[in-house]
């Protein structure tokens, strides 16, 4: 089966056999796809510089089943330039897409959210936390795990000036009834629901909420990727001045 060229991003590449690459690719039409790029590691292979993460691509492939064979690769634009926290954040997107999405389970809206997130991270002075939270919520939503953010467990609308705990099954719990654990401002929940930029004070609690939800649904592998990213984020956090003590995941 042959496909026309399709919009795609390489999420991860590892050496395969002597001169080939094994790629995890995110495509618009087919979701996450495993692909072999034969000969891509030969010294003169023309696709060498192209098959990198964060490079918008048009790919063509053949075959069926677990591993497709890459047949054609063209750039769909210049690579997104990322540094510091934005780079760690972008690696976090790749970690999530690789661990949360099943192979060949198409979610065009996840591809669109991924593309938008990279665009957001590449912008100078990017608000990294907001971009990452928007992608995480889009991913959870696409997979049917979209969290309740605007109504509490009793069905009452979340109040911006309220304080809430969070029950991963049922949503925000008014703080008087919640015991210990996560504490979230109503305003933070509402900003997340609307996909708005997060004020600095709201970032840690938003991060904690999404971390809990992602760990719950995507489990151990996602957690290990996150641990590595967090150790990496420590020195790199200094590169953009906006949240000197935050981590980019």
């Amino acid at each position: 089966m042959r496909h026309a060229l399709e919009a795609a991003y390489v999420l991860h590449a590892r050496p395969y056999r002597e001169t080939s690459l094994l790629l995890e690719v995110l495509t618009a039409g087919l979701g996450r796809v495993g692909m072999v790029a034969r000969g891509a590691r030969r010294p003169r292979a023309s696709v060498r510089g192209l098959l990198q993460p964060f490079q918008p691509l048009l790919l063509g492939w053949s075959g069926r089943g677990e591993l497709r064979t890459l047949r054609a690769a063209e750039p769909a634009g210049p690579p997104w330039r990322l540094a510091g926290r934005a780079l760690v954040g972008a690696l976090h997107l790749n970690g999530l897409a690789c661990t949360a999405l099943a192979r060949e389970d198409p979610h065009p809206e996840v591809f669109a959210a991924y593309d938008a997130a990279l665009r957001g991270l590449a912008r100078p002075g990017a608000e990294v936390d907001g971009v990452l939270r928007r992608f995480e919520l889009a991913l959870l939503g696409a997979l049917g795990y979209g969290p309740v953010l605007t109504r509490d467990v009793h069905g009452a609308p979340v109040r911006a000036d309220g304080v809430y705990g969070y029950d991963p099954e049922h949503g925000p719990v008014p703080a008087s009834a919640a015991h210990g654990g996560l504490r979230l401002r109503g305003a933070t929940l509402l900003a997340l629901a609307r996909g708005e930029a997060l004020p600095e004070a709201a970032r840690p609690e938003a991060r904690a909420l999404l971390r809990m939800l992602l760990a719950r649904h995507f489990g151990a592998r996602q957690r290990r990727v996150r641990e590595v990213l967090e150790t990496m984020a420590r020195p790199l956090a200094g590169r953009t001045a906006e949240t000197p003590h935050g981590t980019a995941t």
């Binding site: 999420l11 991860h12 590892r14 690696l91 976090h92 790749n94 970690g95 690789c98 290990r224 990727v225 996150r226 641990e227 590595v228 990213l229 150790t231 990496m232």
Partner: peptide, 8 residues
């Protein structure tokens, strides 16, 4: 990170 290779 995806291969679990960090600074250590």
């Amino acid at each position: 990170p995806l291969d679990g290779i960090g600074p250590a």
